[in-house]
């Protein structure tokens, strides 16, 4: 009968699938959209070199944390470092893989990329909807001589739970107590006005399409989409443009070895060239490896990424981790142990 033939087909397919699955090294990771282009590039190069496939899917930082906790993926990725207590409770280890910058982007007629300057006060007041028009005197005072139109400001934020939002709001909350009070900081916040876009890509798309919009995206998205980024006045009072140099300047100030779980906060760093909104993006993996071979493969991949892969970072507008950070990270992998109590992977 028809039914039994179909059932036979299904079981054949599934058993074929299971058999096939036993052979190749296939790893799955999920999480932040912030570093997604970099991870995709690395995976492609790594596969060409070793044959191992690292399938990374960008579902948002919150999603990355959730899926690794549900053990449906081999590693999770989050821009927002997970709190030490939660790492402890879940038994997760955390280490950074790449650094990038968060950049405010605008869509204002007549304003070229990098032309508009904003300081802490104006940036936070715009995003808490206190300043509602582009020709507001506060903005004008920071931009003498620039012709600002009488357009309404439309805030564009992340509609999904986002590490990029966490980095951005953390910065604004640090430099603006009113912002902290009204909006707060975190992966999801209550924006007082504006529209939401899904993923970094969604925010970029919305800003490009709405006249008078302002949003925040990871630098690669701003550059690739040729968007008008904003120049910010950093902690030292200097106006900086977002680029690899200013992100690296911010990253160089951090104490990588001194911070537990590498949870460094790169926002609002001192230094004349430092970009104020910089962040590392983190990888989450279980300390107690239930599948030691899989975990070993994951660490082998990240060893490659942290050493050979960092060269490719600049081409995609990310910033490689400083050498001392890489050394400390590789050393920290000694705590990822298999059921036999031995570290699953030791870098050569």
């Amino acid at each position: 009968m028809k039914v039994s033939v179909n059932k036979l087909l299904v079981s054949l397919l599934m058993s074929a699938g299971l058999v096939a699955g036993a052979n190749a090294a296939q790893l799955t990771g999920a999480g932040a959209t912030f570093p997604a282009p970099m991870y995709a590039k690395w995976a492609e190069a790594y596969k060409a070199e070793t044959g191992t496939t690292i399938n990374y899917q960008a579902i948002g930082s919150g999603g990355g944390v959730k899926q690794i906790q549900a053990k449906t993926v081999d590693f999770g990725a989050s821009d927002d470092p997970v709190a030490a207590a939660e790492l402890e409770k879940s038994g997760l280890a955390q280490f950074p893989a790449i650094i990038g910058g968060v950049v405010p982007v605008v869509n204002i007629k007549g304003i070229a990329p990098g032309q508009l300057k904003l300081n802490n006060a104006t940036l936070s007041d715009i995003f808490r909807a206190k300043i509602t028009k582009w020709n507001d005197p506060a903005i004008a005072s920071v931009n003498p001589g620039v012709a600002l139109p009488d357009t309404a400001i439309t805030i564009v934020y992340r509609s999904d739970s986002s590490g990029t939002t966490a980095v951005f709001t953390d910065f604004l909350a640090q430099v603006s107590p009113p912002f902290k009070g009204v909006v707060g900081a975190g992966k999801t916040v209550n924006w007082p006005a504006g529209v939401g876009g899904k993923g970094n890509a969604g925010v970029a798309a919305n800003v490009t399409k709405i006249d008078g919009a302002v949003g925040y995206v990871e630098y690669a998205y701003a550059k690739q989409n040729k968007m008008s980024h904003v120049s910010l006045i950093n902690r030292d009072g200097k106006a900086v443009q977002p680029n690899e140099a200013s992100f690296a300047a911010a990253a160089s100030k951090a104490s990588w070895t001194g911070t537990p779980n590498f949870a460094v906060n790169l926002n609002n760093q001192s230094g004349a060239n430092s970009w104020p909104i910089t962040s590392a993006s983190f990888i989450l993996i279980y300390k107690k490896a239930e599948k030691p071979e899989q975990s070993a493969e994951v660490l082998k991949y990240f060893n490659w990424a942290l050493t050979k892969g960092q060269k490719m970072a600049v081409a995609l507008d990310y910033v490689p981790l400083p050498d001392n950070a890489v050394k400390a990270i590789i050393k920290s992998w000694g705590e990822i142990k298999g059921p036999d109590g031995k570290p699953v992977y030791t870098a050569k």
Binding site: G17, L18, A20, Q26, T28, K47, I54, N55, Q57
Partner: peptide
Amino acid sequence: LLFTALNNQFFTWNMNEP
């Protein structure tokens, strides 16, 4: 498919994977 098959950057015939 977003939370079931997920997606895969690479090629696979194995239906027991993303």
